[in-house]
Nucleic acid binder design. Structure first.
Lengths: 123, 123
DNA sequence: TTTTATACTTACCAAATTGTATGTACTTCC
DNA sequence: GGAAGTACATACAATTTGGTAAGTATAAAA
């Protein structure tokens, strides 16, 4: 949980309060969020399907990021109440409506040959 | 400096290596990067002008983020070699070419009434 | 000679994010 | 009775990010 009185938190709030860009970035800003959204763009997937589609993600990270995406209304979950459990995750309308922008970024990235910056250390 | 052998780092690399979206997000992903880019969209600014335009940023954060933006070629710096010092920061072509996408996100955010998600704690 | 102006650097600390390992629940199959 | 399948939860540790406070350099102005 975050501390509401830390400078970090206060600054985050100040930055996002009036800016839809930074708010949006915050919503999709976790390590795995975009990867998850990208997986869901062609339809709903079960928990384990997402997991297998994203080899490096841990279970903790997957549910954590899914929860946050659900809180911010980008992703929906359907629980079938079966045993063994079955749940399906899908994009909400909000999530779907953002996909064209993600595709823009995708194409922009390719056109501009974007590679991630890395400040590496030897150790 | 980051550790090149941490799982965290390895995962970041895996995520960005083949994906222009996550690479792009990484490049503009610091706390203040988008705010800085947004300030520069109407032309070059001196160090102190940026600083005054972004009330909460500390000097350390400002130069750090500027350096990273320069490393990833979104921002350029011109040093006038005067005393007292004078430097000017401006968007590169890459930086400028991304502005339409930022504006898309801005409009999308307004249209969808995006507010930043907050998991707050009481302490 | 102290102050002012500008653009940084650095050491250190606090906070937030990410990852590891292990455990839970329920039912069917062997 | 034990293993398998599915979707989680939780305690703890490592890593990374962000913030604070103080210092540097140079020359001109007060």
């Amino acid at each position: 949980m975050r501390k509401t009185n830390s400078t970090n938190h206060v600054n985050e709030k100040a930055i996002t309060i009036n800016c839809p860009i930074t708010s949006t970035m915050l919503a999709i800003g976790g390590r795995w969020k975009i990867v998850i959204l990208w997986q869901l763009k062609n339809g709903s997937l079960r928990y384990n399907e997402i997991r297998k589609a994203i080899p490096n993600i841990s279970e903790k990270m997957l549910i954590q990021q899914l929860k946050e995406l659900m809180q911010s209304k980008w992703v929906d979950k359907k629980d079938y109440n079966e045993i063994p459990p079955r749940t399906e995750y899908s994009l909400t309308q909000i999530g779907k409506s953002f996909m064209p922008i993600l595709e823009n970024i995708y194409n922009w990235g390719i056109a501009n040959n974007i590679t991630a910056p890395r400040q590496e250390d030897g150790s």
